Amino acid sequence: MKTASLSHPIHSEFRAGRDAWHVLLWEMLLVMLRHPYLLVAAILPNVVAPALAPVQAWLTQEVLNEISTGDRHFLLRELLSYAPLAMGIFLGLALLQIAEKIANRMLDDRLLIDLQRIWFDRRGDGCVGEQVARSINDCENARKILDLFQKELWLVVVGLPAVVIWQLNLAPDLLPALFVATLIPFAAALLFGGIIQRYSHSLLRLVSGVGSAVARGDKADLYREQERLYIKRIRFELVKQASEAIASFAFWVGLVIVLVLSVTGLWSLLPMEMSAAEIGVFLVNLKLMAKPLSEVTKVYNKVREGWPAVTRVLRPAADQPGPDSGAAS
Rank of each mutant, 00 (worst) to 15 (best):
K2H: 12
K2W: 12
T3V: 05
A4I: 09
L6Y: 11
S7D: 14
G17D: 11
R18Y: 12
R18L: 14
V23K: 15
L25R: 06
L25T: 05
M28N: 06
L30W: 09
L30C: 09
R34E: 03
R34Y: 04
H35G: 00
Y37V: 13
Y37L: 14
I43D: 07
P45Y: 09
A51F: 12
V55G: 05
Q56I: 11
E62M: 02
L64K: 11
N65Q: 14
E66A: 12
F74T: 01
R77C: 00
S81T: 01
A86L: 04
M87H: 04
F90N: 12
G92Q: 02
G92I: 00
A94T: 08
R105C: 00
R117K: 08
R117H: 06
D125C: 03
Q131H: 09
A133K: 02
C139F: 01
C139A: 10
A142Y: 04
R143V: 00
K144E: 11
I145K: 15
L146Q: 12
L148T: 01
K151V: 01
V156S: 13
P161Y: 05
V163F: 08
I165F: 14
Q167P: 15
L174H: 15
L175C: 07
P176G: 02
L178S: 03
F179E: 01
T182V: 04
P185K: 13
F186Q: 00
A188K: 15
A188W: 09
L190S: 01
G193N: 07
I196S: 11
R198E: 06
Y199N: 12
S200T: 03
S200Y: 08
S200N: 14
V207T: 05
G209E: 04
G211Q: 09
A213L: 02
K219E: 05
L222C: 04
Y223T: 05
Y223V: 05
E225T: 00
E225G: 00
E227G: 11
E227K: 15
R228A: 10
I234N: 06
K240R: 13
E244K: 11
E244W: 10
E244C: 03
E244V: 13
A245P: 07
I246C: 05
S248A: 15
W252L: 12
V256A: 13
I257G: 01
V258E: 03
L259K: 10
L261I: 00
S262F: 11
S262G: 09
T264D: 11
P271T: 02
P271K: 13
M272V: 03
V281F: 09
L283S: 14
V284M: 10
K291C: 00
V296R: 03
K298H: 08
K302G: 14
V303Y: 15
E305V: 04
E305F: 12
G306Y: 10
G306H: 13
G306M: 10
G306K: 09
L314W: 01
P316D: 03
A317Y: 11
D319H: 11
D319C: 09
P321F: 02
G322M: 04
S325P: 07
A327W: 14
